[in-house]
Design a protein around this nucleic acid. Structure first.
Lengths: 297, 297
DNA sequence: CCGTGTGTCCCGAATATCGGAACGTTGTTT
DNA sequence: AAACAACGTTCCGATATTCGGGACACACGG
């Protein structure tokens, strides 16, 4: 028979099964065995076996009428453990609700996979509610949360993330120039919060700030978004202040040491704040900037 | 070289990987390679390979200090697709928020794996807020949501679920007698909603009702819970009425045909309301009651 | 009534997986 | 300090396990 794909040290079957999960999660509608096999370049018999295994474990469910597969409750259970592992939610959510009472849509996100992953959304009580699904991803350069993440990391890493690939223009107001964005990050560090005015979503202004854990490291970001209709300059400043305050409160609940200086002001590569774990065993590591950022936990 | 486990037609590696996900989701703290291998009776080298594969795909993440593994963001993304697949949330959540304004804690759940799986929680604005994590499971016989699910299914299936295994007594008020519970279900059908008074959680009264989709089939349940302190009989009725109303509104949003008769009143095995899909190909099916219930989608 | 679609099952081939053993490192105890 | 235990990781031969083409029964549409 034809040779299988080259093994990269991992488990091929598991990798394929996870690809199936990703595929079915991205499509909102259920898919059949052969359709999945086609999209993933798999033999139908292989896809069928993997699907059956996934379904038996509850990670997939199939519709009774058509026998198509969709994401199952077990995936939901396991996925929700991601947020249950930390006390981030309990620290941040009350603050987001407080923002909602101020007619501000609140969001919580983390950096994963070179982008912002939304963890939670709290819609404002205001007339125009904004909603991002938990788990959804957004670009780093167009959102206030993304900029806050960029501002928090060392400049060279931010530079790398902004230059390694072209920045898509999501709205007419999107900034796609890396050097301009880097300058914006610098001023944002001085100010304490980032902003995005219609750069990700037309008609909305948002401000973002970093949430820190007990070690002082930024572990997440929050943002507040409002419609721009009739928005004055003082409103922008007020929203920025409220978001910074919310981030500060959440950080304090997490035991952050000193959130007065919100950002690390040293533009140069800062000496690692906490004594880096010195596993000097020379294991080769994926060296992408995002990966490095993420490893520093 | 002892023989490996017998294959049941599925993929062994994938099944093991999913077991790892379940294990790490149940433990709130990260686990190391050898510890996982021990708990799952796996050789450390196998566990290490599976873990690496899961981590490379983002379904697991490992702490930088200790190299222990925990649930990753990809699992969160995939899991959230479970609720994004239906419009259940958009139909129900506003109703739960309406309950919250009435000082009632609102819950949304579905039947999976012989138990209620919580999909969403909306805490009341009242003094005592009740919170169940999304993805958490609860017993069918002790919760108002569980009883609503039991009341909705044919009597023999409910009977089976209540008698196949002993019903745990979670509080001093828990009902553990199947026949008494069946009688309670009958009266609940006539009334339109189910109740649970301190049977699952001490100090709380809750009422549950069924949410129906466009075909009239019950696809989910909601419940409202309040502290029992100073609760009068008329309050119980009022909460039941509000929950029924919320379920009715949600069902209407889903296009349910006629939610006036909330429950199927025929105590006898009801003739299947909609023409059963007649795939007469004789594929053997797992014949648990929960499975049958679930298949009728 | 045929043609194409589907999900499922079978089975020989051979490959990707298994898992014991060994290595380097960490941090705890002696 | 030295020994110990535990950890994550890698190696590698044997083989159980997976692969995947082919075939079957059924469903749908023309």
């Amino acid at each position: 028979m034809a040779g299988r794909e080259k093994s990269d040290g991992g488990n091929q079957s598991v990798a394929r099964a996870l690809t199936i999960l990703n595929l079915l999660a991205s499509r909102s509608e259920p898919l059949g065995v052969r359709e999945i096999a086609r999209q993933l370049r798999l033999a139908p018999s292989i896809a069928q076996r993997l699907l059956k295994t996934l379904a038996k474990a509850g990670f997939l469910e199939q519709t009774g009428t058509t026998l198509r597969y969709m994401i199952g409750y077990k995936a939901f259970q396991v996925g929700n453990a991601f947020t249950a592992q930390t006390n981030l939610h309990s620290a941040v959510m009350p603050e987001l609700y407080a923002l909602a009472e101020q007619q501000i849509n609140g969001f919580l996100g983390v950096l994963r996979d070179r982008s912002v992953v939304y963890l939670a959304t709290v819609q404002s009580n205001g007339p125009v509610a904004l909603n991002h699904r938990p788990g959804a991803q957004a670009h780093l350069h167009s959102t206030a949360m993304g900029k806050a993440l960029l501002a928090e990391m060392p400049e060279d890493e931010a530079q790398a993330l902004l230059t390694q690939r072209a920045l898509p223009r999501l709205t007419p107001h999107s900034r796609t120039n890396p050097t301009q964005l880097m300058a914006e990050l610098r001023s944002a560090r001085a100010r304490g919060y980032t902003t995005s005015e219609e750069e990700n979503r037309a008609g909305f202004f948002s401000a973002g700030a970093v949430v820190r854990d007990a070690t002082g490291r930024g572990i997440a970001v929050i943002s507040g978004a409002v419609p721009i209709t009739g928005l004055k300059e003082q409103d922008r400043a007020r929203i920025g202040r409220l978001v910074v305050e919310a981030a500060h409160n959440a950080s304090r609940k997490l035991g952050a040491p000193n959130t007065a200086q919100v950002y690390d002001l040293s533009a140069e590569r800062p000496t690692t704040r906490l004594p880096r774990v010195k596993r000097k065993s020379s294991r080769r590591q994926a060296s992408s900037a995002a990966r490095r950022w993420h490893e520093r936990r």
